[in-house]
């Protein structure tokens, strides 16, 4: 616990430094990020989330007063090492392709008796979603340095990949945007924010492989579901339901494109 406190103190001072430099050098986001990376070379503020997540994973909770230690993320009950690297994938028990967050929801429901709807309805960063953030941070840290390795050999996985591709190019709404409007070619920026080309292997590794991430600008840990949610907001689309198939299909599309790339989660972002 005192270790946790010491870490907390360290991050508070790093964050204060960041805020100062954000104002001083706000001319170039890229420069800023490079500076932050330097300052916190031995880690990133996600460590706090990760530690909280490990506690939540092991602590009995919910109406059934059970922990998540028997949760099967695809490599067997309780296996966390490398689990995030092979998601999304098809699960026989739910007969669905699931990403990390929808799979964790299944575990929370079946093992702990927590209602799915309460998780879906919570605001990002609050209540059950705040706990989800921490658990996600814990799980993805155990795939850091591993290779993205998703399969599309099951017919449902293949179908999800194809639908994800279709969703990526699906243009609609008052701004005529699709994901491809912003992430469909190399070297593009919105203002000063670099946009990876998610249709290429290199771009998909940069994008898929570095999320979930700690966002310096908002001081929050964001999961991939939240990243996609905010992109859909900028796309002027209606609200994607948490854990819905379109979010999983898009994740499958990006993950498959990133296959073989080294995972660098939790990332550190603007």
């Amino acid at each position: 616990m005192s270790n946790l406190l010491a870490k907390k103190m360290k991050w508070i001072s790093v964050l204060a430094l960041m805020c100062w430099s954000l104002q001083a050098f706000s001319q170039s986001t890229a420069d800023d990020i490079a500076k932050y990376r330097e300052m916190i070379a031995d880690g990133n503020p996600s460590e706090l989330y990760e530690m909280a997540g490990e506690e939540l994973w092991k602590k009995p909770a919910g109406p059934k007063n059970a922990s998540l230690e028997k949760c099967n993320l695809g490599l067997g009950p309780g296996v966390v090492d490398g689990a995030a690297a092979q998601l999304p994938r098809y699960f026989k028990d739910t007969n669905r392709v699931q990403d990390l967050e929808s799979r964790l929801m299944t575990c929370m429901e079946t093992l702990q008796g927590i209602s799915l709807q309460s998780i879906i309805d919570a605001k990002f960063g609050e209540g059950p979603k705040k706990e989800m953030d921490a658990i996600v941070a814990y799980v993805v840290t155990h795939s850091k340095g591993k290779k993205v390795q998703v399969s599309i050999s099951h017919p449902q996985e293949k179908a999800m990949y194809e639908m994800g591709k279709q969703a990526f190019y699906f243009e609609a709404g008052p701004f005529d945007f699709s994901c491809a409007s912003c992430h469909g070619s190399d070297g593009k920026r919105i203002r000063l924010q670099d946009l990876p080309n998610l249709t290429t292997r290199e771009g998909a590794i940069a994008g898929w492989g570095s999320w979930p991430a700690y966002r310096v600008s908002s001081g929050q840990f964001w999961t991939m579901q939240q990243r996609l949610n905010d992109c859909f907001r900028q796309q002027r689309f209606p609200f994607p339901i948490y854990g819905s198939d379109v979010t999983i299909a898009l994740s499958m599309y990006m993950a498959k494109n990133a296959n073989g790339g080294i995972i660098q989660t939790p990332g550190l972002k603007r």
């Binding site: 639908m163 969703a167 209606p238 609200f239 994607p240 339901i241 379109v246 979010t247």
Partner: peptide
């Protein structure tokens, strides 16, 4: 299948 997914995925 795609149209059903889009219809069910947003609110």
């Amino acid at each position: 299948q795609f149209n059903r997914m889009m219809k069910d995925s947003f609110r």
